[in-house]
């Protein structure tokens, strides 16, 4: 099994390489509480500390109600009522920060605007940035090409399939060249085949764009297929339970990967970690996470 050997050799080098790169963002002691209707305090997130390196892909894995979406909303800038600190390190270093979004989000369900064609859907994502019109259309063309939708610039979302619409949403996020690309279960709404194809495409896109990614998912296989590190969260209040480094190189094949014995054993390990929490969240309050 030479291929296995080759992969594990790359694996050896990768963590040290990453360690040398810059910090993209540093989350320290992040917390978020909600007030229930009865006035009780409900802790959704607690003591989240995480350093995300530049160009790293971090998957956040946990049972539903573990505060994954609370974390996402905070990082996306949709929720400002949190405690703790987020240090967007690259913002100070990067001279082109005005042409980049701090974070751009790909949402779980279709978030394209049905009244705009594909290109306008991309361009409106850039309207908050200091980007010249020429640069904007250059970016739109580049990222539409990257997600394989070059021929669909003028098409409207209702003329596209679900997978294609999600590609538009991904291209829209990429076009802002964000310091952090946030993905909230972006493939969860797609069928199994499309999901596998898209996983492979995402790997290709990220290696092209060198994006820093936080990828929220409840799918263990997907987390293993895509991430450099996997953060496992506990049930409410959401804390970091474990951080697992993924020992596969970036040039992985999401299908072939599943043949590796290590994939299976890691999947089982992670499943045990998560299963504990699923049990707890079912025993416990079991309520749905409050949406503000």
């Amino acid at each position: 099994m030479t291929s296995t050997l080759a992969t594990s050799q790359i694996v050896e080098k990768l963590p040290t390489e990453l360690a040398q790169t810059q910090t993209a963002l540093n989350i320290s002691n992040l917390g978020r509480s909600f007030l229930t209707r009865k006035g009780a305090v409900l802790e959704a997130l607690s003591e989240i500390s995480l350093r995300v390196r530049r160009s790293e892909v971090v998957a956040v894995l946990g049972p539903s109600g573990c505060g994954k979406s609370s974390l996402l909303r905070i990082l996306a800038g949709l929720d400002e009522d949190y405690t703790g600190e987020i240090d967007w390190n690259l913002e100070q270093i990067d001279s082109s920060a005005a042409q980049r979004l701090r974070s751009a989000t790909v949402f779980q369900s279709d978030s394209t605007f049905p009244w705009m064609n594909v290109e306008k859907n991309l361009l409106i994502g850039l309207s908050g940035l200091r980007v010249e019109a020429q640069e904007a259309s250059r970016r739109a063309a580049r990222y539409l090409g990257l997600v394989g939708l070059s021929g669909f610039r003028g098409a409207f979302p209702h003329e596209l399939s679900g997978g294609m619409r999600q590609r538009v949403a991904i291209a829209r996020a990429l076009a802002t060249e964000p310091l952090l690309l946030l993905m909230d279960e972006p493939l969860a709404a797609l069928d199994a085949q499309t999901r596998l194809v898209m996983q492979q495409e995402l790997l290709g896109i990220w290696s092209e764009t060198r994006s820093t990614v936080i990828y929220i998912t409840h799918d263990i296989g997907e987390a293993l297929a895509l991430a450099d590190r996997i953060v496992v969260m506990t049930a409410r209040p959401g804390r970091i339970k474990a951080i697992q480094t993924v020992p596969f190189g970036r040039d992985r094949d999401v299908v072939e990967l599943r043949r590796e014995p290590e994939f299976g054993s890691l999947e089982a390990d992670l499943w045990k970690l998560v299963a504990d929490e699923v049990g707890q969240s079912l025993d416990g309050s079991g309520r749905k996470e409050p949406k503000e």
Partner: peptide, 27 residues
Amino acid sequence: PLHRDVAKAFRIPAWTRWTRIVVPSAM
């Protein structure tokens, strides 16, 4: 609400948000 989230997450300026997202969405 998802369209509103997109507008906020992408920091789309207020005027653009109203004219190109909020009103069309309510159309």
